[in-house]
Amino acid sequence: MYEFDYRRAASVEDAVAALRASGEAKILAGGMTLLPTCKMRLARPSQLVDLGRLQGLKGIEIGDADVTIRAMTRHADVAASAELRRALPALAGLAAGIGDAQVRNRGTIGGSVANNDPAADYPSACLGLAATIVTDRREIAADDFFQGLFQTALAEDEIIVAIRFPRPVAAAYEKFKNPASRYATVGVFVARSASGVRVAVTGASENGVFRATAIEAALQGSFTPDAAATIRVPSKGLASDFHGSADYRAHLIPVLAARAVQTCLSQA
């Protein structure tokens, strides 16, 4: 690792000020992506601004219409929340399947969403559930937030403080995981709500998380596993690597969507 200054943020405002003071400063949340990147010398921040002591950025609130998870809530806490398991089991289950136990004991939802790794799990839940990303200064719809490979709508000095998920009628996440890292080779999040069906896909595209609109349309007509399974997804623009070809990923999308629909139906 290259040298850097370490600063423990006293408040969100303090962290924003630190980012403004130096263009090379970076927020440190759970460190499960940023520290390995620094260790490989792929990042060279001048300063790490640690949000770890800000208790106000931790916690889960379950409302009648939505669930709010604050940015520094760890994957392990999301997975273990009994209230969330009742209110939005798909999200608790998604968190339980991230990485491994030690990673879940440090990694945070805010860090994962800010990072927007094309194979990360949370972005699919945000897009699938039409979540709102709440920052220190504004609210951003998930549809506008994720802007391609590791790209988001966040300004350089902007900090995520919470994610708000509308409560669906039913939702499910199915991941075909990379057996070594547990990142998604393909992951499909299906959510059914009063306003319709949304299907978000992670892991598959070279451009990060996206909505499978053809599957959404089919499920809008008939919310059954078969309706999802019979859609052919074009492989153009999908990722191809030694974990799977673009054709293989294209094949997995309807297969996983159908499984997620099955899980949704069993929740009703």
Binding site: M32, L35, P36, K39, M40, D50, D100, Q102, V103, R106
Partner: peptide
């Protein structure tokens, strides 16, 4: 390892297993 994957460095931190190769002493 140097990729936060092997877990050989696991310790308990405030009662939770963490990879001590991926947490700063100052944290």
């Amino acid at each position: 390892c140097d990729t936060t994957q092997c877990g050989a460095c696991t310790v308990l931190f405030n009662g939770d297993a963490v990879k001590s190769c991926t947490i700063l002493a100052v944290q």
